[in-house]
Design a protein around this nucleic acid. Structure first.
Lengths: 129, 129
DNA sequence: AGTCAAAATAAGAATGATTGTTATTATTTT
DNA sequence: AAAATAATAACAATCATTCTTATTTTGACT
């Protein structure tokens, strides 16, 4: 894997991100510093970074792929109201729960939880009072 | 929801299916009896049936949507070798495990387990002997 | 049975996310 | 510095899915 300025900018943009950006969001961000970068380059590098365990893919059904710079074990919840993706930090990895579910073994999983984010939950409570 | 011959054929095709067919697989199947049916009609009706709780959507990251006629609670595993989708029947609903993960509550989730299906596991063991 | 409004359809265009192609450029190795 | 390799920009292509529109079907009500 050779160095490239573009890949470095992409990696940094994911690193800086507070939300869980899509390829297009990263594209828009990196374009500020590298106006001629191609969207295909962003996709190629995000995939490469994910395949090399440097960033994490977050697959949300019915949405474009999201990406996450936090590699420490955690899960994701999508807000049913505003659509934002929030980190969920279980006390114990869910993986253990899943292992017993198949005789042939579980080697991995994709999980997206659904619920209200803090902001939406609070906003709803305010209106209701 | 008015009756339509097309919707009925689509529902029956999902009902008969042993795997977890995609919209296109259902389209190919229904076309045998209704050659002029449109793919858009298949999509529209699969969505309608799913929205009305008559069939279930099975979202597999990186693949077209699958559908399932079995409405009783169960999970899904995708075989990392052959790509087939198999039903997993947990003793207790995983939902309970997930509820405690968010202060704001969990209203649902999407889960796909990864592992080897029985057939692939057996095949691998044979070769290895 | 005949009329009407609502719902559904076929056909195909359009969309959106993602990947492929190719000629060129940048990076690493010799 | 030259050769070999990987990466890029530009843009075409693909794939799944949804949208549009003119037409047909269905179900309710005479």
């Amino acid at each position: 894997m050779k160095y490239s300025r573009q890949r470095e900018l992409i990696r940094e943009a994911v690193e800086r991100s507070t939300h869980h950006p899509t390829a297009d969001a990263i594209y828009q961000e990196v374009r500020k510093k590298e106006p001629n970068i191609s969207l295909a380059t962003v996709y190629r590098n995000l995939n490469q970074l994910a395949d090399n365990g440097i960033i994490r893919r977050v697959a949300v059904p019915g949405e474009p792929e999201h990406f996450d710079h936090t590699m420490a074990y955690h899960e994701h919840m999508i807000c049913t109201q505003c659509g934002c993706v929030v980190d969920i930090w279980p006390e114990k990895p869910l993986y253990e729960q899943f292992e017993a579910l198949s005789e042939t073994g579980i080697t991995g999983y994709d999980l997206i939880l659904h619920g209200l984010c803090r902001a939406c939950a609070d906003r709803n409570n305010l209106k209701q009072d």
